[in-house]
Design a protein around this nucleic acid. Sequence first.
DNA 1: TGAGGCTGCGAAAGCGGTTTCGCGCTGGGG
DNA 2: CCCCAGCGCGAAACCGCTTTCGCAGCCTCA
Lengths: 332, 332
Amino acid sequence: MPSDRNIRLSDIAAIAGVSLSTASKALNGGDRISEETRARVREIAERLDFQPNALARSFALGRSRTIGVLTYRAASTFAGPVLIGAVLQLGELQQASLVFDEDLLVPREITNSIRELQARRIDGLLVVGDGHERVSPSVTHHFSVPVTYAFAASDHLDDVVYLPDNEGAGRRATRHLIERGRTRIAHITGTAGSIAVQLRERGMRAELTAAGLQQAGPTRFGTWASDSGADAMSALLDSGAEIDAVFCGNDHIGLGVLGVCQARGLRVPEDVAVVGVDNWEGVVLDQSTRRLTTVDLELHRLGRLAAADVLAPDRTPGEHLVPPTLVLGPSS
Amino acid sequence: MPSDRNIRLSDIAAIAGVSLSTASKALNGGDRISEETRARVREIAERLDFQPNALARSFALGRSRTIGVLTYRAASTFAGPVLIGAVLQLGELQQASLVFDEDLLVPREITNSIRELQARRIDGLLVVGDGHERVSPSVTHHFSVPVTYAFAASDHLDDVVYLPDNEGAGRRATRHLIERGRTRIAHITGTAGSIAVQLRERGMRAELTAAGLQQAGPTRFGTWASDSGADAMSALLDSGAEIDAVFCGNDHIGLGVLGVCQARGLRVPEDVAVVGVDNWEGVVLDQSTRRLTTVDLELHRLGRLAAADVLAPDRTPGEHLVPPTLVLGPSS
DNA sequence: TGAGGCTGCGAAAGCGGTTTCGCGCTGGGG
DNA sequence: CCCCAGCGCGAAACCGCTTTCGCAGCCTCA
């Protein structure tokens, strides 16, 4: 049962025998008030479980304690975790989220969503992309509040952007394999056009070069499915390439590669070590059944960081890369 | 660039040469106003792109246009989609979401989250569970606004609850196999204690009974991982059971079963048809690489329905089961 | 012709806080 | 002893919209 009627600040003031303004200052830590009075008011507020009406407060202060969230295909596999991380972080910061899912890639006028966000006097805006396409045109200039982009760059260089560190993922995986003593590392990945693929490849090459190694055979592109990974692995082995490790574009490919190894009697990780990307097993399985070492892009964390950034006092323009983490499994 | 200063209703009123109250009535469709005046005011508001200050409006009306969302492990695999569906639906209904992730399973006092939700004068509350545990104790009585439970029952029978129809999922899968002419259908699933498992099993049995069939062999329990499914399938075949179809507790198990079929030279779906649950491939893959027929529990939709329910004028207490959908794949 | 009802509009009181600013009181220094 | 600075407090304005209710004017009908 919620309390009969909500307690107002005026009730507290009356009981404490002070004015409204004094009571307000007492609770909000204003100056020009004695410690005794402050303590007395606070004690009474505490005792009555006083909760100031957030609506009145927002109205008076002109701050809504609401962050607008503009998403693009938020229900998709990768954008989903970013959005979840964001709304959870916003909740922890006592901010409501006003989420609108839109097509962020078309040139647009001021949409109804943007108008609604403005009318609601949001305190900041978080734009969550789909991880692939650049948000264009940037929506920043429609707002006078901080705007942060998560999981997608915008077409405006001064925007604050949070992205997974795909190059770092390539480096991390490769470094791990090198540390495990591997010297003939192959690369099987997804669609060649993907920017993520290109960045991971660059990271892999950088790390190989730093170690004075050559990639084992050319990078094999395909789809992101395990069948594609299996096919590529079979072709790779059939070509007679000598390999002792494979860096895979994602975990599905990795599992496909694992299947081929098993079928051909190659021991994992003794003969061939395998590393994937996405930590897909971590999402769905308990750790005891993990089969793959993988690089986790930390999408939840990405969402949280970007959300916190919107409210941060010191924001720095440009791209912020979220470091991936290596998740060890039995495949390396 | 956001407009210099926001237009107020008083500006509109001044330009239209009417009072504030008249302008308000004109825009909000109040009665006691002539059509000419209404049209004139509206025309001016339109022309100036007037957006009433939502903060002031909320304050005056005492409605926040914010729905509280209490989640439990929102970042988990299954609760995530429910939460995403919910916040997207709320956005479409122009409602902000105030999300707090908490442990909903412990007996609790009024937590800070609940206090904050009350202070914010939320218009309704959505409780998102983890799909397994019953929310206990029910939080309904802490609020004077509508409370809806999604993806978890509460311990209070009058609460409004939205759940996936696990029994329906078992029935749907089984009916599909029967329609495909299968008569010796086995069941391989996850942990025996799970309520979802029990319900799906019940659905399967109901459909078998209705068709005058017997289940092929006893239900085999295990974990939710593909290895477990593969082991169970091997054991099943080794036991000499004659089967022409398998209903699998989830898609991982299904994929494990598929692997065994392939290894043993069983043709799918000619010799053995396989159906899973969760539509895991749909989440992560494009349809061209789908391998499994599956039953989708429609968790996004569950979240959307529950969210819409919070704001619905006519709410009916009790459990609402969200019908699953069959997603056809090459395995049946 | 006068009473009464109906229509269209506006003045004003709210919603519940925050914040400015003025005033009385006290104490210390000249 | 008087003056003034500074401290503590409260009156009142303000945030922008909604809603009640009274009033003026007009129409209708007896």
